[in-house]
Amino acid sequence: MNDLNTNMIEKYRNSFLNEVEANVEEGEWVKMCMQCGVCSGSCPLGNAWEHPPQELFMMIRAGKREEVLSSDSMWMCTSCYNCIVRCPREVPITHIMHGLAHYARRLGMEPKEQPTAKFAQLFWDNLMKKGRVNELKLGIDLYFKVGEGMKTALKNKDIGIAMWKAKRMNPMEFFGGHAVKDLNGFQKAIKKAEELEAARLDKHKA
């Protein structure tokens, strides 16, 4: 168990809800859920969720920290925003799902071999290189590095060719690819943000 996780358990011993409020994006809204279940029912990928959002909220309130943070449910969210639109209490469910996933990842508690988590990491790494996403490389990484494999790649071949023809994707991008205008500035900004975040987390460790 990582150090940050231990510290967080210690700090919020009494209330996982408080922990979520303080550390999860839009976590302050979790308390406003009234357990109607419309978010869970409205989710187009609902079948794939072991614990739908409303249940996750109840689990948070019931202090089921381990179960929530190690769950793969919130990783299922595709940001369609159906739940937010329907929520009678205006809870930003989509954001909380991502927030929870992010928090779990930071504590090192996300499920192993979680494809969404992996993709997210690929996306991030890809983005960091040039300050923009290199879609060709992202695709290649996804299909060949993560193990989605050749079959999936071939299935999507027509789309790729169509995008190429429509000039939506350039094969030349394979060689380096272009960057944002001020790549140096971008990287500096990211570095600064990382420092700030680290400082914030250090406080928890102290």
Binding site: L17, N18, E21, K31, M32, C33, M34, Q35, M58, R61, A62, R89
Partner: peptide, 14 residues
């Protein structure tokens, strides 16, 4: 008032 209770971090458990 129910909303006010939620704001106050009451855990409502059915």
């Amino acid at each position: 008032f129910y909303r006010a209770g939620q704001q106050a971090m009451i855990t409502f458990t059915k």
